[in-house]
Write a protein that binds this DNA or RNA. Structure first.
Lengths: 208, 208
DNA sequence: AAGGGAATTCAACGAGCGTAGAATTCAACA
DNA sequence: TGTTGAATTCTACGCTCGTTGAATTCCCTT
């Protein structure tokens, strides 16, 4: 419809050969991967959303696989965000409650939203993305969480961290992918209050 | 490899025109949908796995969509199984623990295994299958669970049931789709002991 | 003004998909 | 045995996909 404002770029301080298409492609890729998963998203649709020829996408990124990797690259450094959130806990709420609220805020923030849901949907679709997410969970979640989980027992700590991941993953899938009514409509605080104590128990409580 | 034993049927008491191909196709469809999701599974691969021409699949089921519906049809009556499991609780374990153990046993039983994982993977892939699973969760899970959830408050009961669904869904995705190490390797009893109390709290405990 | 390199588009190939209809085999029955 | 209807296969259409290489446009540098 709208002739996508070609050459609408101007003096935005880009380096020599830059035109802004690369960034637009990445943005469109994140959105498409978020909505349709890795397999469902098409280079042609991504190119169309970015107002660009499909061949240009291929010219920049070489393959769909590498485009996916590139579109997931930057945002996947929230291990710091997690560690920070774990430390920044306020006195009023439990650690688990704070984790749930922080995670929801992070996932639904403008920065992460597309990337996270793209990663989530894609991981459930493609084996490659599943491996990526599995590794990410291991490195970025299980490790920092294990550090605060109770007990000197390393096996126990990784089991505890996995249970946390299980619950958080269920929350994400229910709220963003399946959109199960009450879970999709509840506020971040409601969910944090309801789920937080379960996380607390996985972190430091008595688990079978 | 193995030339799939064509015409290996014999006197198995089938009705006039029956040949067994329809059943073989359904079985192959379930397996393929389980491994690759709705979009990832192809009629051609299903036909090949069933040792049959793709056109025959189309001849019997008319479309991929209807084949999917047919392959999911029979096994999706576990609402009775759930209700029964809820009633059959033994004195030794809590209701939540019993629910988790029953669910794992059901999901991993020979009857359900393929169908359940097919439904799970497909729901995460295709919007149509997601709707199917959402409706299924609502009818078959939330309703019976709401009945045993605490309080006369109907809203509260459906929120409680949703939280149960969130956790069980996370368990299923972690164990079967992403195969997160500790969760994939743990025994049914270990998981039941660890997760059961969280389910108990969602059913009858204090949730924010 | 000219050159050159990056950005971008054009047109097309080859593969896989779901689906369709005609043709063929098969098995039961008159 | 000949017929009939179901089961099954053959062939192919139309579509979309990722990818490719050549052609073209753009814009900075000299």
């Amino acid at each position: 419809m709208t002739p996508p404002a070609r050459n609408a770029r101007s003096r935005t301080g880009r380096r020599s050969g830059d035109s802004g298409s690369k960034a637009a492609i990445l943005e469109a890729a994140r959105a498409q991967f978020a909505d349709y998963g890795y397999d469902g998203a098409t280079i042609r649709a991504i190119a169309a959303a970015a107002g660009v020829d499909p061949a240009l996408v291929h010219h920049f990124y070489g393959s769909k696989e590498r485009l996916f990797a590139a579109s997931m690259e930057l945002p996947i450094v929230p291990s710091e965000a997690i560690t920070a959130a774990l430390a920044r806990r306020e006195p009023g709420s439990s650690l688990g409650t704070h984790m749930v609220r922080s995670a929801l805020a992070l996932w639904e923030g403008a920065d992460m939203r597309d990337s996270f849901q793209a990663m989530l949907r894609s991981a459930l679709t493609s084996e490659q993305a599943a491996t990526t997410l599995r590794d990410f969970l291991t490195d970025a979640i299980l490790a920092p969480v294990s550090r605060v989980a109770a007990g000197p027992d390393p096996d126990g700590a990784s089991f505890r961290a996995s249970l946390v991941a299980v619950h958080m993953l269920g929350l994400a899938v229910s709220r963003y992918v399946l959109r199960i009514g009450p879970v999709a409509q509840a506020s971040q605080d409601e969910l944090a209050a309801a789920i937080g104590p379960a996380i607390d128990r996985y972190l430091t409580g008595d688990i079978g």
